[in-house]
Design a protein around this nucleic acid. Structure first.
Length: 249
DNA sequence: ACATTAAATTCGA
DNA sequence: TCGAATTTAATGT
């Protein structure tokens, strides 16, 4: 069982809980190391815990019948996943696979449900997370038609710096160009060109097996129209950032 | 798809 | 334990 201080230091939202809630979740919480390539929970299986990323990188993905891998979300430090399977008591729709050596926190299903039933603070936290994710996927849907490959890669990376979902995100992303492409839904060659373009513009630095982001705002804005839209088209620039100003990096 | 380069691993001293 | 040789991973085009 984790010590109370360890729990507080690993779970960024733990300080929102009452002391009673903290004692409730402590016995049901553990941490675990997953080596690169390990599957945390395969598609079609119930999640037996809610997973939080302490370090490393996890992707939620499925493999299409033709064998193509589709990544639905990439998560790094601060990210949580598996709540849908737990809340609905349904099998996971996606594989959770770690793309780098990772340390995860596990909150048992029964502990999660106990908190879900009793803790207002925990429910508010969940709503905040789901709210951000919903907005994120709405943007992905909208942008799918509007943005070119470079802008999609830019937004895909920018999503990893959402302050609600990843409050302690490190600027150094341990992801390969291939993973960056999967995250944005573009091929590796397109991701390669996109990353070089973003480097030229000064948003990031590409290194072997790693991307260092230097300008998150620049990534978020990349590819947005600066001139008036042609009549009859929705301007991309009308999309507004709704993150709290004080959280903007 | 193929060629190149970086990193990780193996192996012999 | 050192480093050369080999294999694997990631990148560039």
């Amino acid at each position: 069982m984790l010590s109370a201080p360890r729990l507080l230091s690993m779970v960024p939202w733990a300080h929102l809980l009452t002391p009673a809630d903290l004692e409730l979740i402590r016995p049901g919480t553990s941490e675990r190391f997953y080596p690169q390539g390990a599957t945390v929970c395969p598609e079609g299986q119930l999640f037996d815990a809610w997973f939080g990323v302490i370090s490393g990188m996890v992707k939620l993905r499925t493999v299409s019948p033709e064998g193509k891998e589709v990544v639905v979300a990439g998560m790094h430090a601060g990210g949580w996943f598996g709540e849908r399977s737990i809340i609905r008591n349904k099998a996971s729709s996606y594989d959770a696979v770690v793309t780098r050596d990772s340390v995860l926190v596990l909150i048992d299903r029964s502990t999660f449900m106990a908190l879900f039933e009793s803790s207002g603070a925990f429910n508010r936290l969940l709503v905040h997370h789901l709210n951000e994710r919903l907005f994120h996927f709405a943007q992905v849907l909208e942008q799918g038609r509007n943005l070119d490959g470079t802008a999609r890669v830019a937004r895909g990376l920018a999503a990893l710096f959402n302050p609600v979902l990843y409050p302690h995100a490190n600027r150094q992303l341990d992801i390969t160009q291939e993973e960056a492409g999967l995250l944005a839904g573009v091929s590796r060659p397109v991701a390669n060109q996109a990353l070089k373009a973003l480097q030229r513009v000064g948003c990031l630095r590409v290194e072997y097996g790693r991307i260092t982001v230097t300008d998150v705002q620049g990534l978020k804005r990349y590819g947005m129209a600066v001139t008036a839209p042609e009549p009859g088209r929705v301007a991309v620039c009308q999309v507004r950032c709704t993150w709290p100003r004080e959280h903007q990096p």
